[in-house]
Each structure stands twice: as structure tokens, then as C-alpha cells.
């Protein structure tokens, strides 16, 4: 689905954010991208939809080479990539519905979108994803009237309504409390499975990443230093990614939480139906 080859990003200041990154993500796979702050996680996913211009290398989405698109073609390509942000990045003064419909902007003309006259098919899509993420009761509320977890659900709905092939997720839980974080991560993983989406999830919480994703990529100073299953994150690997520290506690915590989660899974699922708002 997504194939990145030799991606390099050098900022105008001369900082090298990414160096010859090569990786590929098949459809339906959720990849967790971990690494210390400044490792280039954010630059990597922003290079994919070209919010940040890559300096070298190729990025292919299916057969489409994203790194050499004209402006117009880039707009069309971006419709196939949904993005979810750390601070939700909602337009506060627009309603929930308007925020979700903004995911369809790439498909409708300017004046139609300006007067909020979206095709009924788009409205139907928006209602469907709002129902899926459990926000049916908040459609005409302003985005800034919602709680953090609800806001992130709106962000997810906006990405989904694009009907993308790929999700780019930038620290989705960094502004949320632990319980809501898990609900949001679970929602993202479930949605990727339902719709067979590829996803790259930037995440700084190693334990949370291990709990939900099928594959982890570790970045350090712009280079890939680990690529494998969550179990492969041994203390040595973590030391290579983050630097020397006592990692046993982190790993044990993740395992324990995994067990606990398995034990209370039915209860959690019951509590975590989409209607439950964070």
C-alpha cells in the first residue's frame, strides 16, 4: 500500500530530520512509530501527505508517486490519506458536523462548500461515521464544547469520512488521560481492521503502542533502528532507540496491562461501546 524509499528531509535550517528512511506498510496493517522527541516521527508522516516537503526519496501510495505530484494532483492524492492530530486540530467555531464534512472538501467545489450545500451522499457518509465513533448526539454542537476524547473522535470521523486508504496519525493520545487514550487507540485499530486501512501511528507511549499495534518501527535521529513485532522490543532495543535507561519496568508494565486487559476484556468492551463518551 505505502512504500517509502530513501526518504530524506533536511530543513532550511540545515537540520537533518530524516535520513534514508525505507519502509513499507501493507493494507490493513497498523504500524506504531516510536522514538524520542525530535527523532523525526512527525516529519515522517507529514512528508507522506506533503504538509512537509521531502528533500529526497520516493513515497508511493499504491502506484502513485506522491513525491512528484503537481499541486492539483496533490490535492486529489491527499483525499486518500486521512490525518489525525495530537491536539485534534478541529476548527473550534465550526460545529461537529461541519468539522466532519470538512473531510469531504477535496471532493466538492468551493462555492458548494462555502454555502454548506454538500451532496446528500456526503451527508450520509458523515452521519454514518459519526454514528460509528459515537457522536450522534452532538452533531450541531460547536467543536469547542466537547471533551478531549470527544474532540479526538471528531478528528477521527473527519479522517474517516474522506474514505481514505491510509491513516496518518500523529500522537493521537498525547493530550488525553490514560483511559481515554486506550479507548481512542482501540477505536483507531478497530476501524483500520474494519476498513482494511493501512495506518502509521506516531506514539510516545511505548506500553500503549505494544498493546495495540501489530508492528513497531523505532526511529532515532531520523534513522530506522528497529522494525518488528511489539514483542521484539527488548531492553537493548529500547536503549538503542531512546538511550540508556532501566527499561524492565516499562516492559513489565505493558505485559501486566495486557494481561489485565485480557482478563477484563468483556467488561471493557461493554464500557467502551461508542456511546460511552470520554
Amino acid at each position: 500500500m505505502l512504500v517509502i524509499e530513501n526518504l530524506t528531509k533536511r530543513y532550511a535550517t540545515g537540520d537533518l530530520a530524516l535520513e534514508k528512511v525505507t519502509l513499507s506498510v501493507p493494507a490493513g496493517q497498523v504500524v506504531g512509530l516510536i522514538g524520542p522527541s525530535g527523532a523525526g516521527k512527525s516529519s515522517l508522516i507529514r512528508c507522506v501527505n506533503r504538509l512537509v516537503e521531502p528533500s529526497e526519496g520516493t513515497i508511493k501510495l499504491g502506484d502513485l508517486d506522491l513525491s512528484r505530484l503537481s499541486r492539483r494532483a496533490l490535492g486529489q492524492a491527499r483525499r486518500r490519506m486521512g490525518m489525525i492530530f495530537q491536539e485534534y486540530a478541529l476548527v473550534d467555531r465550526l460545529s461537529v458536523m461541519e468539522n466532519v464534512l470538512s473531510g469531504r472538501l477535496g471532493y466538492v467545489g468551493f462555492w458548494r462548500s462555502f454555502f454548506r450545500r454538500f451532496p446528500q451522499a456526503d451527508i450520509d457518509r458523515a452521519f454514518a461515521v459519526l454514528e460509528r465513533v459515537g457522536l450522534t448526539d452532538h452533531i450541531d454542537k460547536r467543536a469547542d464544547a466537547l471533551s478531549g476524547g470527544q474532540r479526538q473522535r471528531v478528528g477521527i470521523a473527519r479522517a474517516l469520512v474522506q474514505e481514505p486508504d491510509l491513516l496518518l496519525v500523529d500522537e493521537p493520545t498525547a493530550s488525553l488521560d490514560p483511559k481515554t487514550s486506550r479507548q481512542i487507540m482501540r477505536l483507531i485499530v478497530e476501524l483500520c481492521a474494519e476498513r482494511n486501512l493501512a495506518a502509521i501511528v506516531n506514539i510516545h507511549d511505548v506500553a500503549l503502542a505494544q498493546m495495540f499495534v501489530q508492528r513497531i518501527i523505532g526511529l532515532r535521529k531520523g534513522k530506522v533502528v528497529f522494525d518488528g513485532p511489539p514483542d521484539g522490543l527488548t531492553p537493548d532495543v529500547l536503549t538503542e532507540i531512546y538511550g540508556a535507561e532501566d527499561w524492565t519496568a516499562t516492559i513489565r508494565k505493558a505485559e501486566e496491562e495486557d494481561e489485565q486487559a485480557a482478563a477484563v476484556a468483556p467488561a471493557v468492551l461493554a464500557r467502551d461501546t461508542p456511546m460511552v463518551t470520554a
Binding site: 490525518m83 492530530f85 470538512s102 477535496g106 473527519r158
Partner: peptide, 20 residues
């Protein structure tokens, strides 16, 4: 951030202005 988010949906520059 919201401006980036709108741009990331594939919106045209005018739409980014009007929506973001």
C-alpha cells in the same frame, strides 16, 4: 493546526481559507 488539518483533507487553497 486546524489549517494543516483542512489542507491534509485535500482541500483547495480557497477552501483552506474559508474553512480553516
Amino acid at each position: 493546526e486546524p489549517v494543516e488539518a483542512i489542507r491534509a483533507t485535500g482541500a483547495s487553497p480557497q477552501q483552506v481559507l474559508a474553512w480553516g
